[in-house]
């Protein structure tokens, strides 16, 4: 509740600063460089069907990418992080691949996955995959030995050790990494959506929406606001998921 209030205050602050910037630029330059927030809102509402379809397409791609990244990065990270031998063999490989932006390989990804939905989801999930993977490996290697000893003396097998100790110990850090990477993921999504021009029309994703209407600044900016909402949506989604799955982290802290 209190957090919702903070967001409301922040929204008002952005609204005010934006309007101020529009006004100042208009006075200095003599023409409206940045459209006022209310005209952006009006333009967005006017084109609501296209805007909504663009937002839904981008959100769906991001959601699929997030699930794919967790489904692959988390188990692999647990395995590599928990085993000294696997870590020795795989970590050089991972740390060599980790800094490569998937966008640099976009041409090859298009060749491999075509120009449809697949390549966009693959690009974003590759980005998020490495964030989740590296966070999971780091956290799995830092687990207190006393937790591991406690379940081993109680007779736990390897699977039980992963389920009762390693996975729950690693989750909070993985969620933090994923939350921090939402912005990076959206950047990658934008590039993947627009790299090949305006295929699919303005309703096929926020990136294409923004570029299609580049000449109608108020409409184009409504697409940018859509990106901000997209980021907020997934940031909040991950936070709620973490608060639910990692309740123990928040006991006694309200």
């Amino acid at each position: 509740m209190r957090q919702a209030l903070h967001y409301l205050v922040a929204a008002f602050a952005i609204f005010f600063l934006w309007a101020l910037a529009s006004f100042v630029l208009e006075q200095v330059k003599g023409w409206p460089v940045i459209p006022y927030p209310w005209s952006v809102a009006a333009a967005g509402i006017e084109y609501l069907p296209q805007w909504g379809s663009a937002f839904a397409s981008s959100a769906r791609r991001f959601f699929l990418s997030l699930i794919l990244a967790f489904a692959t990065g988390l188990p692999l990270g647990l395995l590599v992080g928990a085993s000294e031998r696997l870590h020795r063999w795989f970590s050089p490989l991972i740390y060599l691949l980790y800094p490569i932006p998937p966008i640099a390989l976009l041409f090859f990804l298009y060749m491999a996955f075509g120009v449809g939905e697949g390549v966009k989801v693959v690009t974003v999930s590759l980005t998020l995959f490495f964030q989740v993977l590296v966070a999971a490996i780091g956290a799995a290697r830092n687990i207190s030995p006393s937790y591991i000893l406690a379940v081993r003396t109680a007779g736990a097998n390897a699977l039980q050790l992963h389920r009762h100790v390693i996975l729950p110990a690693v989750l909070p850090e993985v969620f933090t990494a994923a939350r921090v990477s939402v912005g990076l993921g959206i950047t990658m999504l934008y590039i993947a959506e627009t790299k090949l021009g305006l295929l699919g029309g303005p309703g096929s994703g926020l990136g294409v929406f923004i570029e299609t209407y580049a000449m109608r600044t108020d409409l184009s900016l409504s697409g940018v606001v859509g990106l901000a909402f997209l980021g907020l949506l997934f940031y909040t989604f991950l936070e709620i998921l973490e608060r639910w799955l990692c309740r123990w982290k928040y006991v006694g802290k309200g």
Binding site: S146, A150, T153, G155, H164, V165, A169, C246
Partner: peptide, 23 residues
């Protein structure tokens, strides 16, 4: 164990049951 080895993500009851559950 030395520091009781409680798992912070499990409640008192879940921690107390853990050895039975693992076996």
């Amino acid at each position: 164990t030395q520091d009781a080895g409680l798992l912070p993500w499990k409640t008192v009851r879940q921690n107390a049951e853990l050895a039975l559950r693992l076996q």
